[in-house]
Design a protein around this nucleic acid. Structure first.
Lengths: 142, 142
DNA sequence: CATATTCCTATAGACTTTATAGGAACAAAG
DNA sequence: CTTTGTTCCTATAAAGTCTATAGGAATATG
């Protein structure tokens, strides 16, 4: 959910013409307000969005939506893409239950899975998401 | 872990020449005994293995390892492959936060992901896992 | 009957998920 | 300088999932 909410928020921001307060994003994205606040903070830390405080403050994308990659966001919010930590590039960690990692058949298999997954996810941008929406005036994304 | 343990148990059984008691599998696979017991029960329900009770009982594969698919096992143990339930084929469930599923951009994107994932995982058998192990007498899989 | 095993049920600690609540810090407008 | 609308920060918490552990009933063999 958290990850999904993050992506929804980014799509809303990508479609918006100006900065938006979290309340407005929450409404458009149908995400619990306070929960979204925390997510936006994470997205900011991650460099995907920027924010302005105070009255008439709000959030906006930090870069063009075509440069914000879904894989990057998922890693920031959810953690590793790989099914097992020993097959992760960005969150590598040794397994307790395998001693000969070089020959571990589970690891080899899961490396293949993780590579395919990251190819897909790192090649998919927020702009791509936006483009999946059918062309119409009243934008409904979900 | 659970899923990984299940796959490890299946690889051990695939490499074995005869039925094996759970204790022996646990040792070879380096999986907690009692936990493995529960997993083997699930694998049996799923049709991947058969078992015999009593002294000299044990577990064996229910079919040739080339016909036991990793995707099938993961679904049985972990549940859906899809990142979101609305994009799952076998575990479909409507999201609360999306009303127009047909146009939902998140769902469309995650459908692509789940399709690639299931192609990979449903095309990978326990035999394939076994074949990833380097050829040598003393079989060490992990 | 003794032994080795699967099978079944219950329990439990730690962690993750999915939030909610309350208020401090900040910025703009009147 | 007060009001209003924000972000930002910290704490709390209910529910669920994960990762087992424990104990023993049922079953099969010799």
């Amino acid at each position: 959910m958290k990850c999904k909410y993050a992506l929804k928020a980014l799509v809303v921001l990508a479609a918006a013409e100006d900065k938006m307060p979290s309340k407005a994003i929450a409404k458009k994205a149908k995400v619990p307000e306070k929960f979204l606040e925390a997510i936006l903070t994470e997205l900011k830390k991650n460099g995907a969005i920027t924010s302005e405080r105070g009255a008439f403050g709000g959030h906006r994308l930090a870069k063009p939506p075509a440069k914000i990659m879904v894989g990057h966001i998922i890693r920031a919010i959810d953690g590793m893409l790989a099914p097992v930590s020993c097959a992760s590039t960005f969150y590598y960690k040794k397994c307790r239950d395998c001693t000969h990692e070089e020959v571990c058949v589970i690891r080899h298999a899961m490396l293949e899975v993780r590579n395919q997954l990251s190819d897909k996810l790192d090649g998919m941008s927020v702009q791509n998401l936006l483009d999946m929406s059918p062309k119409q005036k009243q934008k409904i994304f979900w």
